[in-house]
């Protein structure tokens, strides 16, 4: 059976080498712009080959689940659609409710997130937060 870490190392080596070769040929970068990437790619190749010979590491993030990763990534489309100001409190509320938190506590969490976003990031830091595609269309 193919080990995932070996697959990852091989994929990284191939991607890095492909980029360097592309830069030297089709990309047409001048020689001095290629030197250091080529040296770094050499390092990736040599140490990658050495790492391939090693046994798989023990432990690692064994308790990590795919659903947790998907939960985290889900915030991204939400932010694109609704903007930070709406998406982050909404996400906090849904995340807490989905994990059997009482509606009141979930609501308080969402309000807390909204207050920090507004007070710290918008008022103090002066960040211009976009409203997102959907919310922006309504607000416009």
């Amino acid at each position: 059976m193919i080990r995932t870490d070996r697959l990852l190392i091989c994929g990284t080596i191939l991607a890095v080498l492909a980029m360097v070769v592309w830069g030297m040929t089709i990309g047409g970068y001048p020689a001095n712009a290629n030197v250091f990437p080529a040296i770094a790619a050499g390092g990736v190749l040599i140490f990658g080959l050495l790492a391939l010979r090693e046994p798989p590491p023990e432990g690692g993030a064994g308790d990590v689940t795919w659903s947790a990763m998907l939960w985290l990534v889900a915030v991204l489309p939400l932010v694109y659609l609704l903007g930070f100001r709406i998406a982050l409190p909404l996400y906090a509320f849904i995340f807490a409710i989905a994990r059997r938190t009482s509606p009141l506590v979930s609501l308080l969490l969402a309000v807390g997130v909204a207050v920090v976003v507004e007070a710290l990031f918008v008022r103090v830091l002066g960040l211009r937060l976009s409203w997102g595609w959907l919310a922006g269309a309504f607000l416009r």
């Binding site: 985290l72 915030v75 982050l88 807490a96 969490l109 997130v113 990031f121 830091l125």
Partner: peptide, 23 residues
């Protein structure tokens, strides 16, 4: 964690966004 994750995620995302204001 169910209360901590959304809060920390907010800080991490806005921390990243605040460097250049770039999504």
């Amino acid at each position: 964690p169910r209360l901590l994750v959304p809060f920390l995620l907010m800080l991490a995302l806005l921390g990243a966004y605040s460097t250049q204001g770039d999504m």
